[in-house]
């Protein structure tokens, strides 16, 4: 520790992976919303797109036309990190490291990813890694060096099972799992596309059902909201868009991620009583 302090006076940044296993549950939306939320709260944050070949994050962040160099260029030494980082025009503390649309996941090497992440750790408080779907190389590289994990889950059985699989990988196939004596990755569930009416009709799983299976703390509940799709299409992270139930839920989740205790609530006007019961679980 002492040698660390003398070499690197700055606080080491925290690496948070946004992952899920299943596709289409809202990983990239959540990565954009959470990183923007962290920056809004004054934390210097970078969000990295690990979905090599299916570049999406830059579109949701509204910077797709500003991409010159990317993550893969940096890993392969064709560009410096500073050249590839895109500074957000709206938030001073927010940076985006886009990925390549023309390469594939094999371009991600463990050594290359580690080098880039170590460099970022010195500069940023939070490094948010947007994982691709699946459990193959791209997803494994995104989670390998993480300190914390946000497992994005929809309240339906296939999504929950895939999240469970990913939680297993987080506790076995990551740097923290492989290093003896290291604290395991702190994993939390973010329930997205939560539709109170459909759950009341019994068409989807309840929060209790999901948490009982996954057996990890709940980071937040993001309601199904038209604001999410609208914001994505406009290239604005949900948390930077006009106030909505979804943006309020993401901001609560961000606050919890930074260690604040925030009561679990659904920002819409529907049955808050259901979620108050859950508060005890999240501590």
């Amino acid at each position: 520790m002492t040698s660390n302090l003398t070499q690197k006076p700055k606080v080491q940044g925290k690496i948070i992976v946004i992952t899920s296993g299943k596709g289409g549950v809202g990983k990239t939306t959540s990565a954009a919303a959470i990183s923007a939320g962290l920056a809004q709260r004054g934390h210097k944050t970078v969000v990295i797109d690990f979905d090599v070949g299916l570049r999406n994050l830059d579109m949701i962040m509204g910077c797709e036309r500003r991409v010159v160099f990317d993550f893969i260029n940096v890993i392969q030494g064709d560009a410096r990190l500073k050249q590839a980082l895109i500074k957000d025009k709206r938030l001073e503390n927010l940076f985006i490291l886009p990925t390549s649309q023309t390469r594939d996941k094999d371009a991600l090497t463990k050594e290359g990813v580690e080098k880039v992440l170590n460099e970022l750790r010195d500069e940023f408080e939070y490094i948010v890694c947007d994982s691709p779907a699946g459990i193959e190389r791209g997803a494994q590289m995104a989670m390998y060096f993480a300190d914390e994990a946000v497992v994005v889950t929809n309240p339906e059985v296939s999504s929950v099972r895939d999240s469970d699989r990913v939680l297993g990988l987080l506790s076995s196939k990551t740097a923290r799992a492989e290093r003896p004596g290291a604290e395991p990755i702190k994993a939390q569930v973010l329930l997205t596309r939560y539709d109170v009416q459909r759950i009341a009709r019994g068409e989807m799983m309840t929060v209790d059902d999901v948490l009982e299976i996954l057996a990890v703390p709940l980071l937040g509940i993001v309601p199904e909201s038209p604001a999410v799709l609208r914001a994505s299409n406009e290239g604005v992270p949900v948390t930077m868009d006009e106030p909505s139930a979804a943006s309020a839920a993401y901001m609560d989740a961000v606050a919890r991620l930074t260690g604040e205790e925030v009561e679990m609530r659904l920002a819409s006007d529907k049955r808050p009583g259901l979620f108050q019961r859950l508060f005890g679980r999240t501590g």
Binding site: R161, D162, D164, R165, L167, G168, L169, S171, S172, A215
Partner: peptide, 8 residues
């Protein structure tokens, strides 16, 4: 003493 996850 930890949860056994899907696929393990």
């Amino acid at each position: 003493t930890v949860p056994i996850r899907s696929g393990q």
